[in-house]
Design a protein around this nucleic acid. Structure first.
Lengths: 338, 338
DNA sequence: AACATTTTTGTAAGTGCTTACACAACCTGA
DNA sequence: TCAGGTTGTGTAAGCACTTACAAAAATGTT
């Protein structure tokens, strides 16, 4: 809109050099009180705002961190972003957010966008960003050569990549075990591709069965294809599964949304919860309190994870040696569905 | 980490000038195919990523839009951000996200941060950003002199400020009217400060009462102070209110979270829904499908609002004359609580 | 007052990129 | 073959800021 006010304008009006203005701007100590005041007054008067591009060019850093996520409208991810953003801001860092969706191509694009902005670090939220094949992770390895890469809830062993995560395997194992202990021997593992870490959760689930010398029934591993917010459709899928002859007395869902869907299914099928069918969700989100009966769920301490991640990052940026991997334990919170 | 690869490195290795490299980078047509290929190959080989600071300095724009929100972990805001971010990305724009919380001081800080980044526009999500007093909005007026300011779901008549919103007044009026029509003459207006536009919703509610020549009972306007995710606490507040002798046969909540709290209250108090007490939420979020009974709610067409906002913005940035205010209607979605 | 220090300020050279302008190379068609 | 295009490429001047280095000013010491 308007012509930009630059430090030249300030320097001229204040009768000092641009270097002095710059010093004032950067809180450099070597400026006389009187000069400083004069410059600050004129900055105020002219409504000057420093140009971050120019500044970034000189400093090759603008204290900004890039956050990559698949879908910021997912409750869990939204919460994570909130916690991370807050912690970063408290440390004087700003945030660039990019949502990538789930296509590899877009993830790569977003990554290189962030690199071009010369962010001080890139935070990837969720295991969505780790691909199956080594080759498909090459862009991450390369990015990590330029700037530290932080993973939340994912696990990747590359140089300069740091992971902060919850041990989903163990938490799933324990949750499943608790269902088995209560006599639910045919627990359905209900997941969709968006649930981050579904694979680890599945392994934990399977391990529990093996541990108890119970058979792992392939039919009981059920992949939900639909929309992650469409409760009705989840319930219908489960109904269909039941009708197809698959028998189950418990549902372990890979996130709370699916857990709510499971509750809907059980209720509309006239099953008693938890007697006929026990249900456990994952994330311990607010949804667990919204349903009737309230949903038992695995709490993976998101807030702790996020603040730890930022703490680690701050350490790295200050040049300290930091652990590559920090792992917390999850914890089953029993409510009315177990 | 590593020394940056610049266009000088590319130009040298390719045996062309930096201008040519720059042209290739910007998809300028006036480059011979052969030259272009050579340059691109070397860019690939050296793993070059353009420096956004330098680029921004030259162009004084980096196609980025700043988004300001109070709390990105709020479901509704998170969704809005998602829709906006997606639409912007489809138009070749990137996003800087800043969460400000609810303190004026922090809002101002975040705003000037975005200005310093020379964003092409600033989008403010939610009415949280409009203060009571003219004076406290001065920073917005000033910002708008530098760059277009877009409001989602808020209403401010400044030059270069554009608003896209749902007519919450009207929607609330209609929702309340529909409760009155069904015989609920003592509807509680249940709100908290975080619900954006609570004031407009309240006016709509009150207008409906006046319209029907019913008294507006001050006791029925109830402000919830607690945490916006603590369903139990909401229910307890309502219980307390009831015990204090306030009588109501309907609850109109300013967002779905509060609506869920209202359901919890009604159920634990042994009231029949909707016979004894009807409940309406606001936002028509996913939560409406999670509860039993499912929550009726006002849909304010968030996705439409967001895409319209971005459409308007793109028009502005292309230099077109655009309407300052675009208003959609909300719509009551009746489910099992009405 | 003369000198040594310390503090304050200015000059100018980056920082990596875009782009106006100039020039060279390559085509046309007469 | 040459004037008059086109097309392709290079030179150099920004863009708004930081900062090393040099110079000037202020202060202290004798």
């Amino acid at each position: 809109m308007e012509k930009q006010v630059t430090i030249y304008d300030i320097s001229e009006k204040a009768g000092v050099s641009i270097a002095t203005v710059s010093r004032v701007l950067n809180g450099n100590s070597n400026v006389k009180q009187k000069t400083r005041k004069k410059v600050l007054d004129i900055i105020e008067e002219l409504g000057y705002t420093p140009n971050a591009f120019a500044r970034g060019l000189g400093l090759d850093s603008m204290n900004t961190i890039g956050i990559l996520c698949a879908d910021s409208s997912d409750t869990y991810i939204a919460k994570a972003i909130f916690y991370i953003e807050r912690a970063l801001r408290e440390n004087g860092y700003n945030t660039i957010l990019c949502c990538t969706g789930y296509k590899l191509e877009n993830k790569k694009k977003a990554l290189s966008l962030l690199l071009s902005k010369r962010v001080d670090s890139i935070i990837m939220v969720g295991s969505h960003f780790v691909e199956e094949s080594e080759e498909d992770n090459a862009h991450i390895r390369e990015a990590a050569m330029r700037t530290p890469v932080m993973f939340l809830n994912a696990d990747l062993d590359y140089k300069n990549v740091f992971c902060t995560l919850c041990d989903d395997y163990k938490a799933s194992f324990e949750a499943t075990q608790s269902l088995i202990d209560k006599g639910h021997k045919n627990v359905l593992f209900f997941y969709n591709s968006n649930s981050y870490g579904a694979k680890k959760k599945l392994s934990g689930y399977q391990a529990a069965y093996l541990q108890n010398e119970l058979p792992v029934n392939k039919d009981l591993i059920y992949f939900y294809h639909g929309n992650n917010e469409d409760i009705q459709s989840m319930a219908e899928c489960l109904k269909k599964l039941e009708k197809s002859g698959v028998d189950f007395d418990g549902i372990f869902a890979s996130d709370d949304n699916l857990g709510i869907g499971a509750i809907r299914y059980a209720k509309t099928s006239g099953k008693r919860i938890p007697e006929d069918i026990a249900i456990i969700g994952y994330n311990n989100s607010m949804l667990t309190e919204c349903s009737t009966p309230r949903l038992s769920s695995v709490d993976n301490h998101l807030e702790t994870l996020c603040s730890q991640l930022v703490k680690t990052l701050m350490g790295i940026l200050s040049g300290n040696e930091m652990p590559q991997k920090i792992i917390f334990s999850g914890e089953l919170v029993n409510r009315e569905t177990t």
